[in-house]
Design a protein around this nucleic acid. Structure first.
Lengths: 328, 328
DNA sequence: CTGAAAGCGCTTACAG
DNA sequence: CTGAAAGCGCTTACAG
């Protein structure tokens, strides 16, 4: 390649990688020559070749379950910024919650030989994760499922967060609290529902099936759920939605239907996406910090990657915070 | 690799790639053997090795200027879905409009040896694009800059779209129309401003500097601009914002300041992002179709990739549509 | 119908 | 301080 400018290809490789370590020394003179040549030739080592030779791709992957929820693009971007600091590339993969696409992602991961992945998945089995681990890829999972002896978990204490929301709602005088729960197939949906249920219990409120609406995490589903809730003979005075997408949907439906929020129904969400401040009234919600998540995730990944043995599972719980705005 | 299951590594490669073409024939028997072995071994060819051997990465890159504008995550996701049909991976790169990150992206592109890229860039020079073309990567650019003899352009007729918006506003009786123009460094900003100006001209309205606010494309900037506009001795009765992010910002500011939209000020945006329907009043805007953009972009890329010579520049203009909602 | 061999562009012991 | 050589895991003429 760039040895057209003086020396051996070995030497070029050494200076490009600053391999001035163990028993390699490059004279300043040749180093300059090489650097100059590289510059004029506009030389850039092909990452595919490097990956092949070193068995390290310097690539991280992140899987996001959908794009329409701004939380995920933001998370992905944050991870990208974070990974750059360690000179890692990141490839972002959107599955739209499609099991087929999750499988395809697993395949792509393995074929590309990424060094690590941070993911949130509905479908992967322990066997799938085994494959990754065996292939030497580090994995951190958002949420607590599936648990795996050699994969890390990264999450908020979502149950506790929702319990705190419930306590707040009760303090506001609410005794009929509904939830728009999201899909039970998602760990987030399950955890948040669990928090709702235990919140009910702690305050001696009965669970009423009609106040629990399971939905997907899709735009539109929140409105539908809210419609059903408002049509109840005895409608709830407050509703906790399992994420902001749903909450905003529900809030808009209520407002457009002529109810006032929070007077007629209080609404609180989860995630704190940017849209939470552009609806009126502004959405009260629990803040899930994308940058914290990204930093912690990449850090855990890096520790695994820069370590020879495969570490046992770790679990990291990040802080949450309730953001009190106008909807509750 | 998987030849532990019978035959030569050549044969494996042949069956994996269905290379049953020119002078290669594989007996059904061996084919089955190989397939079976591959399955039990869970074999997946390493893409890095394939890329190295074939000089083709089967990867597309897309650069997006920011994430906070949902338009771009959506565009990226659409491109990803589209590329999958041709069995291409796509790597998404977010620059946040940072020139340094744009440079880094160029570098990453070249090193990774992507086959094609669709981009929208403020900073790349013709020389930068030359580098890509020479390296054999196909490039399609959103917008019309920089023009390059061997890169394709893909865009709406943004000028005409804005002229249509202006005509509509005039038809509604507006004679004092302002614009929140976005940055003049972006082609979108420039084009849309051009449309605004020519719209003014067509309807014999004078251009008034105080009615033209140049901003970044950042959340918050629209509010600031709207504040200035409303504080004018003679405020505008309508404002065209260069994108929905800005428009929504402006709309919220006006509403929160007690003006009614569109009675006191009409507002129209550009892009038609999902948020446009979650503000009240709902935003009137021009629809820029992400799926069309993605399909056309990937198609142009594929044509270049599957063609031996390098095609001369082409330009594709996509249709736009004004979506009339409540804000104007 | 199938295999041996060279080559893709790098890195890394190993010699000198 | 520097270079020759093997090897990373694939593909692809070329022989047979």
């Amino acid at each position: 390649v760039a040895e057209l400018a003086g020396v051996s290809i070995t030497t070029v490789s050494f200076v490009m990688n600053n391999k001035t370590g163990s028993n390699v020394w490059i004279s300043d003179e040749t180093r300059q020559k090489v650097l100059a040549a590289a510059r004029t030739l506009n030389y850039r080592p092909l990452s595919a070749a490097q990956a092949l030779a070193t068995k390290r791709s310097n690539t991280l992957a992140v899987m996001i379950p959908h794009v329409e929820n701004l939380f995920y693009p933001h998370l992905a971007a944050a991870i990208q910024r974070e990974a750059e600091k360690s000179n890692f590339e990141v490839v972002i993969y959107n599955t739209d919650n499609d099991p087929g696409r999750e499988e395809a992602f697993l395949d792509a991961l393995l074929r590309r030989g990424v060094d690590g992945v941070v993911t949130q998945t509905y479908q992967w089995s322990t066997a799938d994760i085994d494959q990754l681990i065996e292939a030497g890829v580090a994995v951190v999972i958002h949420g607590d499922r599936p648990t795996h002896p050699f994969a890390d978990n990264l999450m908020l204490d979502e149950v506790k967060a929702v319990e705190a929301v419930m306590a707040y709602l009760v303090r506001q005088g609410h005794r009929r609290i509904a939830t728009i729960a999201g899909p039970p197939t998602s760990w987030g949906g399950r955890l948040r529902k669990k928090g709702y249920l235990s919140g009910l219990r702690r305050h001696d409120m009965a669970v009423e099936e009609s106040l629990i609406r399971e939905t997907r995490f899709k735009r539109g589903d929140g409105a539908q759920a809210m419609e059903a809730l408002l049509a109840l003979p005895e409608p709830p005075t407050a509703v906790f939605a399992a994420n902001d997408l749903l909450a905003i949907d529900a809030l808009l439906f209520a407002v457009d239907a002529g109810r006032s929020v929070p007077e007629d129904v209080a609404i609180v969400g989860f995630d704190n996406i940017p849209e939470a401040t552009i609806v009126r009234p502004r959405l009260t919600t629990v803040h899930k910090d994308v940058n914290l998540l990204a930093a912690a995730g990449v850090e855990m990944l890096m520790e695994r990657i820069n370590c020879d043995e495969v570490l046992p599972a770790r679990r990291k719980i990040l802080p949450y915070e309730i953001i009190y705005r106008e909807s509750a």
